[in-house]
Lab assay of single mutants.
Amino acid sequence: EEEKYTVIYPYTARDQDEMNLERGAVVEVIQKNLEGWWKIRYQGKEGWAPASYLKKNSG
């Protein structure tokens, strides 16, 4: 089951394993960790993003 989330704040990656996020983008969360960083898939790429910048899509 894919978990789709919408980006609610833009984010600029500060590290090579982080993802740039555009507000309104829909991403797939593939791994959650306890530090508040989630691994996401977006446009065929995978990387880490701050969970607080993502909002779960309803339905």
Rank of each mutant, 00 (worst) to 15 (best):
E1I: 12
E1T: 05
E1S: 05
E2Y: 06
E3D: 06
K4F: 15
K4Y: 13
Y5S: 02
Y5N: 01
T6A: 10
T6Y: 06
T6S: 10
T6P: 00
V7Y: 01
V7K: 00
V7D: 01
V7W: 01
I8Q: 14
I8R: 11
I8L: 14
I8K: 13
Y9K: 15
Y9L: 15
Y9E: 15
Y9S: 15
P10E: 08
Y11L: 09
Y11R: 14
Y11G: 02
Y11I: 15
T12S: 11
T12Q: 06
T12G: 07
A13R: 05
A13H: 07
D15F: 04
D15W: 10
D17E: 09
D17L: 07
M19F: 06
M19A: 10
M19K: 02
M19S: 04
N20W: 05
N20F: 07
L21P: 01
L21I: 06
L21Q: 00
L21C: 03
L21S: 00
L21W: 01
E22S: 11
R23G: 11
R23D: 13
G24Y: 03
G24I: 00
A25M: 13
A25L: 05
V26A: 07
V27L: 02
V27Q: 00
V27H: 00
E28K: 07
V29Y: 01
Q31I: 09
Q31H: 09
Q31F: 07
K32I: 02
K32T: 08
N33W: 04
N33M: 10
N33Q: 04
L34C: 14
L34R: 15
E35S: 14
E35T: 15
E35P: 14
W37D: 03
W38F: 04
I40M: 01
R41A: 03
R41H: 14
R41T: 07
R41G: 04
Y42K: 12
Y42V: 10
Q43V: 05
Q43M: 09
Q43I: 03
G44H: 04
G44C: 14
E46T: 05
G47M: 04
W48A: 03
A49L: 12
A49V: 12
A49I: 13
A51I: 05
A51T: 09
A51W: 02
S52M: 04
S52N: 15
Y53Q: 13
Y53F: 08
Y53C: 15
Y53M: 07
Y53D: 02
L54W: 01
L54S: 00
L54H: 01
K56M: 13
K56G: 09
N57R: 08
N57Y: 10
N57M: 08
S58M: 09
S58L: 11
G59M: 10
G59Y: 10
